[in-house]
Simulated scan of single mutants.
Amino acid sequence: MPFALFLLALAVFVMGTSEFMLAGLLPALAADLDVTIGVAGLLTSAFAIGMVVGAPLMAAFARRLPPRAVLLSCLLVFAACHVIGAVTDDFPVLLATRVLSALANAGFLAVALATAATLVPSDRKGRAVAILLAGTTLATIAGVPGGALLGAAAGWRVTFWAIALLCIPAALGIMRGIPNRSVHPSPAPRLRVELGQLVTPRLLLAMTLGALINAGTFAAFTFLAPIVIGGPRLGEAWVPLVLVLFGVGSFVGVSIAGRLSDRHPGTVLAVGGALLFLGWIALALLASEPAALLALVFLQGVLAFGVGSTLITRVLYAAANAPTMGGSYATAALNLGAVAGPVLGILALETGAGDVGPVWTAAVLTALALGLAALRRRDLLGG
């Protein structure tokens, strides 16, 4: 694998840490800026929406520019937003920086996914996607807990400074490792032609399935804490460990999928998808048993990210005729799921399904994805 892929993964790690770490910083941040926890939560919503909207917009804007210039610009804007966020005492300013940093993050990931697919042979896109998504999974393992610990020890503003500083080695690596020329076919298809690919059955199916699986993953993952505390009554001290366990599983999952998703996508989706569905049911039923909970959290991390990353790879294959926009389609599918999943999880909690309601939601979403994939298997895997 080209070393440039690992440099892109480093930047994805930094951005993933910023995206996920905020949940542990909201109480201190709300107290410091004199807003309620609910208002502070808008920072998370703003970031998620910015990711969904920003991916196609940024990719369309930058489609004819050299990838290195776009990646560096997005990374520097992302770093600058965190510097401003670290020094401001004005919540609206901080909110604006989160929206802008989300746009930069979305643009970076969209271009990185499209670029990664061109740095490897045409039949190894799955390996490239796995390396990039490993940056996100490592953020849940090390970056997010590290940010929470740093915030608790030195204040939430220090974590923003730390993110800005981590952007520096990532930027230097991109300057050295990514060519300063377009890696897409020249001339690239017209934007209208690339956008037209969105109505093709294969691409639309892959994006829908990716969004469904990711929505299920985030519905359950977002609400693991109340399950840990209320089910087996392990106590709040176990929450970080459980989240890290899920992160370790997700890293294992994308690593396995990276080796299988190019040559055996049907097997990964059929076997992995079925096990993922059964795993959500088992987790919902056995959440009160500590040993079963810990084992299933790890296993679901493996399966959710293994199946999810395989579907994102299918998006890139299906978007082969949209070389400059394909990465944004994959990014949009990921983040549509990341936005919808927690919302559906909240609805499950409010309907009286209990702490495991979001897990049942994940099972339903996975079942929908499996049914759709079975009906349209030829569209998903053909070509």
Rank of each mutant, 00 (worst) to 15 (best):
L8F: 09
A188T: 13
V83T: 01
F13W: 02
L299G: 04
W156A: 08
R263Y: 11
L172G: 12
A220Q: 06
V70N: 13
Q197N: 06
G235P: 06
G326D: 08
P232Q: 05
A220E: 04
V120C: 09
I141M: 07
L311D: 12
L368M: 10
F3V: 13
A148E: 14
W280P: 10
S182Y: 04
P179Q: 02
L100N: 03
L198M: 04
I84M: 10
L195D: 14
V356W: 04
I37L: 15
L95M: 07
A4P: 04
A206W: 05
L149Y: 11
F223G: 02
F246L: 11
L278M: 13
D90G: 08
G341M: 05
R259M: 06
E236N: 03
V339C: 00
A333Y: 05
A79H: 06
R192M: 13
T200G: 15
A284K: 03
H184A: 07
P290Q: 04
L303Y: 06
L100T: 08
L380V: 02
P67D: 12
R314A: 07
A55D: 03
L243R: 00
D32I: 00
A116F: 10
R259S: 07
L241V: 15
G230K: 00
T36K: 04
A292W: 09
P232K: 08
A152S: 14
A154C: 11
P185V: 10
A46K: 06
A171V: 03
A117M: 10
P240F: 09
V83Y: 09
V87T: 04
R98T: 11
D355M: 14
L294Y: 02
G50N: 01
V158E: 14
V87C: 01
P67L: 00
I49F: 14
V77R: 01
L133G: 08
A69V: 14
L205R: 00
P169D: 07
S122P: 12
L285Q: 05
C74V: 06
A318D: 10
I168P: 11
L10K: 00
A353P: 10
S261M: 13
V252P: 03
L22T: 15
L203R: 00
G327Q: 07
A152R: 09
G16N: 03
I312N: 15
A369N: 01
I229M: 13
L22D: 13
L166W: 02
L336F: 12
D262E: 05
L311F: 05
P121Q: 09
V302P: 09
T310C: 04
A274Y: 14
D355Q: 15
P232L: 01
K125D: 00
A291P: 12
L57N: 07
L100C: 12
A4Y: 02
A291I: 13
L204M: 13
T44G: 14
R181M: 11
R233E: 14
R190E: 15
T361P: 08
P56Y: 02
R68D: 09
V364A: 15
S328D: 11
F251C: 05
V52A: 01
G216D: 12
G143T: 03
T36I: 07
G143V: 05
A225R: 02
L336P: 05
G24L: 05
G85Q: 00
L57D: 14
I227R: 01
L241K: 07
A287Y: 07
V254D: 12
I37Y: 15
D90K: 03
M325Y: 03
G54I: 03
A369D: 02
